[in-house]
Nucleic acid binder design. Structure first.
Length: 408
RNA sequence: GCGUCGGUGGCGGAGUGGUCAAUCGCACUUGGCUGUAAACCAAGCGCCUUCGGGCUACGGGGGUUCGAAUCCCUCCCGGCGCA
């Protein structure tokens, strides 16, 4: 995998680049679609192409449980299995350490509010002990070696270590894979964040080692390490610094956040990471977050937000304002979601008119699955386009600053 | 006409003397959703409120009772059966 920076914004740390993968080149900054179970829920590959998405990210934990990574390998790898020929990455299962662990059963989310219930992460035993799961009322428990999961599908017991996550990801065969890490709660204290971060660093080394061992025989090409450290500047910088010294092909910025911390944390990390490698801000998000992240120097984003919102009836309207199409006011609103939007849902395809808010509202009220599909296509298009505009802006600004690097 | 069963909130449908403004669905209204335990979750849903409470309600009317959606009488309406 090769990464080249083609333009830099003179007014910020933003940069535009090209990320070459065996399945094509990604123009960065880019928004990546989340295809957890090997699909962006409710959207076909053909429809995805119409959104302009350049890359998708699938999930190790989900695909390992079902249909099984061996089966995917048998199918010829995830690309072939899901019919997506473009660039593909897989997440390591690190996020499930959080969502099935510290966050389980609480009202904890990736980007939380300041007043959330504290997610207490008591010190864990240092050895693998399956019994602790039941004692803690969660589906994932961490120890030094790895994480013990109770399947959310059937309650069966599973074990992930960095080595295992990498092995599974190699079986899945994405272009970019991610080191196994621990996503911590936004409000975890300094002591715990440090402990978790250092463990994540040890896991990063092990992931790297496992990756190197298998890389020749497998399809997976590039490995990204994950920066942690929570809301603490010293830890974030340290994490970025330590990981930079390892031989990763790129870096993810992980963790969960209190909204106000997001921007600062991303800023600290990007200042420490090497300039010549791509940075992926995991699981973020909202339009303003993308703009802020790009300004800080982030190259890649992925987020479930556009599709999850879409499935539940919320779309990005004019100027990115969120609209809940189930609200009464849209029942007789026969205009498109956004008159200025060029997506197939709003603008239609090849001269055929698009869909109206009222029609979408009807689909959602009637619980017709097409509603989720149409709204997902629109929301994805919106975010992809937003990032594309930013990318163009960086390239154009850069040109005026007499950058010799030509555009592609 | 006689007999019989039944009439409860927008709808379906519980409740059959007090703990009932009334279980539960659905519909409706509004929130929330950021590396997907998520086509999901939460709250509200008679009227008024200074949020303590107050008022009007279970087909209509009249009784019994300290107290009735629940018991009795009567009227109206509907289903079924017999003429």
């Amino acid at each position: 995998m090769k990464f080249e920076i083609v333009a830099r914004d003179p007014h910020s740390r933003a940069r535009a680049g090209l990320l070459h993968t065996p399945h094509g080149t990604i123009e960065t900054p880019a928004f990546i679609g989340v295809a957890t179970q090997g699909t962006i829920k409710g959207v076909t590959v053909e429809q995805l192409e119409a959104t302009g998405l350049q890359m998708l990210i699938a999930n190790t934990y989900h695909l390992y449980l079902r249909p099984g990574d061996e089966l995917v390998r048998e199918a010829g790898g995830l690309h072939r299995f899901m019919g997506w020929n473009g660039p593909l990455m897989t997440d390591s299962g690190g996020f499930q350490v959080f969502s099935l662990g510290a966050a389980f059963g609480k009202n904890l989310t990736k980007v939380a509010h300041e007043d959330i219930e504290q997610a207490k992460d008591e010190r864990r035993p240092s050895v693998y002990d399956p019994d602790i799961l039941t004692q803690h009322g969660r589906l994932a428990v961490i120890d030094e070696e790895g994480v013990t999961f109770t399947s959310h599908l059937d309650g069966s017991l599973h074990r992930f270590t960095p080595e295992r996550s990498i092995e599974i990801q190699h079986n899945l065969g994405a272009d970019i894979i991610v080191a196994f890490d621990e996503c911590t709660a936004a409000t975890a204290d300094w002591q715990y964040q440090k402990e978790a971060m250092e463990r994540t660093h040890r896991w990063a080394e092990r992931s790297l080692k496992a990756h190197r061992r298998n890389i020749e025989a497998n399809r997976a090409q590039a490995l990204f390490g994950v920066v942690q450290g929570g809301r603490f500047e010293d830890l974030r910088r340290e994490s970025a610094h330590v990981l930079s010294s390892m031989n990763f092909d790129g870096f993810c910025i992980g963790g969960s956040y209190v909204k106000e911390d997001l921007d600062t944390a991303v800023g600290w990390v990007c200042e420490e990471l090497p300039e010549d490698k791509p940075r992926h801000l995991l699981g973020i998000g909202e339009p303003e977050d993308l703009v802020n992240g790009i300004e800080k120097g982030v190259d890649l984003f992925d987020c479930v937000q556009p599709t999850r919102l879409a499935r539940t009836g919320t779309v990005y309207g004019p100027k990115g304002m969120k609209m809940n199409l189930l609200n009464e006011q849209f029942r007789r609103d026969f205009s498109p979601i956004d008159t200025d939007c060029g997506c197939p849902i709003c603008a239609g395809v090849e001269g055929k008119g698009g869909y109206s808010r009222a029609y979408l509202a009807h689909l959602f009220h009637a619980r017709e699955m097409l509603g989720a599909t149409l709204a997902s296509v629109h929301n994805l298009y919106y975010l992809v386009n937003l990032v594309t505009v930013e990318r163009m802006r960086i390239r154009n600004n850069s040109k005026h600053e007499s950058s010799p690097t030509p555009n592609t």
